[in-house]
Design a protein around this nucleic acid. Structure first.
Lengths: 95, 95
DNA sequence: GACTTATTTGTACAAATAAGCAAATATAAG
DNA sequence: CTTATATTTGCTTATTTGTACAAATAAGTC
C-alpha cells in the first residue's frame, strides 16, 4: 500500500470519526429509502448548513451518494463499498 | 447503540484517521515482536515527541498496548480487538 | 413573476489538533 | 554518582475543524 492509498484510507476513517457524521451514517443505515438533508438534520441537532457540509465530506469519501430529486437532494449509504473498505483494513490489522 | 458507545467508536475511527497514526499502525502490523518508539519513529518522519503523543492516543483507544521493558517501552497492536470493532461497524453498515 | 422550501456558500469565531524544540523524567550501564 | 539513552511533558506556533447565522442559489408551486 502506497502513501496515497494510505492517505485515502485515513481520510475515510477521519470522515467517519466525527460524532455527528457517524450519526448521519447510522441514520442512513436504518433507512431503506434515500433521505433528504432536512430529514437527516433531525438526527443530529445541528444547523442544516452543518449537515450539508458533513454530507459533503461523507460524499467526498464515497460514504454516501447524492441524487437530485426535485428541489431536494436525497442521500443514500454506499453500504457494501464502505463495509468492504473497513473489512479490508480489519483483515490487514489482524494479519 | 447509545451516544456514549457511538462517541467511543467515533474516537477510535478518529484515532486511526490520521496519516501518521495509521502509518504507525501499519508498521506495528508488520512486526511480530513489540516495537519501541524509537524504532517506530522511523516509519513516519516526525519527532520522537510526536510519535510519543500519537502512540498515547492509540493506546487510549485500545489500538495498541504498551509494556515497560527496561528503559524503553514496547508497543504491540491489539489486532483482534481492533479488527473486531471495525468488522462490527462494517456489519452494521452493510445491514 | 412572486413566493415557498431545500440546500449551499460566505464569513466569523472558538476549540481542537499536529508539529517542533527544549527541558524534565526514568532507567540502565559504567 | 555520572553518563547515556528512551520517553514524556511544557510551551509555542500554525493549521484545521466544527459550528452558527445570514445571504445566495436552486427548483418547485401559486
Amino acid at each position: 500500500m502506497d502513501d496515497a492509498q494510505r492517505q485515502e484510507l485515513a481520510d475515510l476513517l477521519k470522515a467517519l470519526g466525527e460524532f455527528n457524521r457517524l450519526s448521519l451514517v447510522y441514520e442512513l443505515c436504518q433507512c431503506n429509502a434515500p433521505q433528504n438533508a432536512m430529514c437527516l438534520c433531525e438526527c443530529c441537532s445541528v444547523d442544516s448548513s452543518v449537515v450539508s457540509r458533513h454530507l459533503k465530506v461523507l460524499a467526498q469519501q464515497g460514504v454516501v451518494q447524492m441524487e437530485k430529486k426535485g428541489r431536494e437532494r436525497v442521500y443514500s449509504l454506499n453500504r457494501s463499498d464502505v463495509a468492504d473498505r473497513l473489512r479490508a483494513l480489519a483483515d490487514q490489522i489482524e494479519g
